[in-house]
Nucleic acid binder design. Sequence first.
DNA 1: TCATTTTTGAGGAACGTACCTCATAAATTG
DNA 2: CAATTTATGAGGTACGTTCCTCAAAAATGA
Lengths: 362, 362
Amino acid sequence: MVPVQVRRMTRPTVNDIAREAGVSLATVDRVLNARPGVRPKTILAVHQAIDRLGYVRDLAAANLARSRSYRMVALLPDTDSQFVQTLATALTEAAALAAASRTELELLRYPPEDMHILAARLARLQPEDTAGVALMAPETPIVRDAVRALRGRGIPLVALGSDLPNTGRDHFVGIDSHAAGRTAGVLMGRFCRGLKGRVLLIADSMLLRDSIERRRGFDEVLQADFPDLDAMPTLETHGAPDVLHRIVGDRLAATPDVVGIYLLGSGHRALAALLRDRDLLGRFVVIGHELTPHSRSALRSGHLDAVIAQNPGHLARSALRVLRAKADRQPIDEGQEQLRIEVVIRENLPPEPADDCHIRAA
Amino acid sequence: MVPVQVRRMTRPTVNDIAREAGVSLATVDRVLNARPGVRPKTILAVHQAIDRLGYVRDLAAANLARSRSYRMVALLPDTDSQFVQTLATALTEAAALAAASRTELELLRYPPEDMHILAARLARLQPEDTAGVALMAPETPIVRDAVRALRGRGIPLVALGSDLPNTGRDHFVGIDSHAAGRTAGVLMGRFCRGLKGRVLLIADSMLLRDSIERRRGFDEVLQADFPDLDAMPTLETHGAPDVLHRIVGDRLAATPDVVGIYLLGSGHRALAALLRDRDLLGRFVVIGHELTPHSRSALRSGHLDAVIAQNPGHLARSALRVLRAKADRQPIDEGQEQLRIEVVIRENLPPEPADDCHIRAA
DNA sequence: TCATTTTTGAGGAACGTACCTCATAAATTG
DNA sequence: CAATTTATGAGGTACGTTCCTCAAAAATGA
């Protein structure tokens, strides 16, 4: 029986540091909170005492004393995409839990058709009343400028779900689209083992960075490892179920040798409806993105073979944690914030999140 | 622009509840902490005030006032299994983070060959100095009794990685082995599309519940959906690389129609070595469990096709969170504690965790 | 050396909750 | 109705930190 880690009876406090370093409590405080007016020599002495004692600041007490309440803002597009809806729910749930640690979240939706409205909303946010912003938006020039201005004002911002690499955002909470596309490519290739034919790709819009990167990753893998499969040009549905039904239906009718379908964006329900109408269920290997009620039911019934997903609960919690850390100017735990590219098939489908999750003061 | 959630200027405190309910602070305190000596009628009035104000107890302040420090104990088998090592590291890292919120972890290893030593260690733990226990152990009668006694003393216990369903453990932190086995089965079946032959199964020991359940799930799927594949009897290696090398080597030599290998437990390195020695790399579909340095490198080099994994970081953090919640008698967030059955292929292999993760007082 | 600036010390109030004591008010019992 | 039990109130201290003020000491410049 090997004790790997031993325990101190009582944790050292700021007073212990003061005594150990031979300085006053006030000086320790100045050092701990990086306040000015301390000689480098003294700073060093305090840090050495901290190291010697193994002091860890009690965050609970610190935040209590600060009596700081963190008001975060989340901005999501106001689309009826199931994924965005799920994410909104996850954010609300994460916020309910974070409420116990003085973190509040205002969840806002912006009309996706006009980025000026989003930009105007971002422009109104001030550091005094906003501790951080989580934003899900495509990286248009207008958005880019608005985000840059926001960060110029000192407000931390994390990109949610879709990255904004050229805005100087503090962090990206989400998965690498290119790797996600590669993953989809490998699954498509392997599930189609022994088959030869074409693969249909369906996206909302090929103007979205995510779709472009997924497609690129998918193509790379197919070309390199699965020469029997041929990826067709992407069909764009613009989020409209009827458009999907029509153009994908036409394409399927015109292309007899389709063996697989890769749904890059939303449209699980419309695709399932189309395949059902044409009596084509189970004829293709179908791979899609994101776990939603529709993709879940398609997985369960076997009409969808795999889903590449990011966990909305993790997204939401990670976004809040990162914003909180940024607000506290604390380092973030990279390992914990690393979102996984989840591969979901029928057999590892996580149980439907229960809605009867009541959280109240004990 | 729709504000989905609005914000109160200042959060209500216990004093606000007292005023709102028309009682004293002392009474509110009695109700909040379930102390005796309050009439049901008064309790109700306080609860109504709480609901009306939307009060959420400030956990930071509460724990500070309690000046409670949570001493958790984690018990892992002292094997040189890579997964256990990774988990130990993850636990230590999670503990470093949790230290900021008054949670300490003592990580102990017990000799896996004699459960009596583990049982004796558990018997020594007292509620006064132990806020909770995370235990990774097979469910033998000795362990079962020791865990029951521990819980009888009022110490919360979570099963880590491998469940202890008949001990009354408070929670299981890990993935469903049966579903994991089914997932492996589906991947094996689909990756072997068009092939006909036998699948070799390798386990450490078929006395371990996890291996039994994985095998059962795997068999179910193969029988139901992939009749061309035939799962052979499990080979047991007892964790010894040389045993694996010998018996798997013999079996492969004696069985020409093997198309797939399912590694139920540890042994990634030994299997890779064997296949390399016999020049058999890439000849079979190989599926295994857990992400370790060896399985990572096998995935990268293409000798391993997929890994079914549970995230050790999540395991560790979840265990600490659950124990903390149990110690506080707080409800746990099922959604957050739901471990995913991860499917890892080369393309969605998460980046190697960096070792230079320094956490210190800011 | 003296004047000036910089650095340090001592002390206290506050954050929101827990938990203690003692006194008093209210309800219950005989 | 008095005697007793039970419920409630008032007030305090403590937790570990932040952040403030004011005074004193030390270092720096001329």
